[in-house]
């Protein structure tokens, strides 16, 4: 006999979560759809001097200037020229809009909360532990769930915010 508590746990395990999946290098990643504001094509990025290497610059998003982060650079992946597939995922990061350049956006997928496994201790590909919130292992694909709010480690966030002088 299942107790009330386990029923509840099962329910939350079955809860569906929607993710936007995108490609970066050879891997597939996912972010919570609710955090995504929009997905846009690559546009003219204005470089901002004296900022961390992974800050590509800023763009004009309908009259609002938002910072653009290169996830390839951030994850220490080899550089790749932008092509027709390149997209900017505009997300809400701590109440501020921020764009992330990815190789391609594939789809919105639904996964059950129970499908999300904790990240393995060591992940190859150089993506640091901190912003990995889990992996989804399906028969034909492996999806890495990212928490982009934590894509900057605390110290990086501080140095981004505080003056670099």
């Amino acid at each position: 006999m299942a107790t009330a508590a386990t029923i509840k746990a099962e329910e939350s395990q079955a809860e569906l979560i929607q993710l936007v999946s995108f490609n970066l290098d050879r891997e597939e990643y996912g972010v919570y759809v609710l955090k995504v504001r929009e997905i846009i094509r690559m546009s003219n990025v204005t470089r901002v001097p004296n900022t961390p290497y992974y800050v590509e610059g800023v763009i004009n998003l309908r009259g609002k200037v938002i910072p653009i982060i290169s996830l390839r650079k951030k994850f220490s992946l080899s550089d790749k020229d932008h092509d027709k597939q390149t997209r900017i995922i505009v997300m809400d990061v701590d109440g501020e809009l921020m764009g992330f350049i990815v190789d391609a956006v594939s789809e919105v997928i639904r996964v059950a909360a129970g499908e999300i496994q904790p990240p393995p201790a060591v992940v190859n590909g150089g993506v640091e532990q901190e912003y990995l919130s889990g992996v989804i292992n399906r028969a034909d694909r492996l999806l890495v769930l990212l928490d982009l709010e934590r894509v900057f480690s605390q110290s990086e966030r501080e140095s981004l915010i505080s003056s670099t002088l």
């Binding site: 001097p49 900022t51 938002i66 910072p67 501020e96 921020m98 981004l160 915010i161 003056s163």
Partner: peptide, 8 residues
């Protein structure tokens, strides 16, 4: 420039 880059 937003709070992340405001201090560039």
């Amino acid at each position: 420039l937003g709070k992340y880059l405001a201090k560039a």
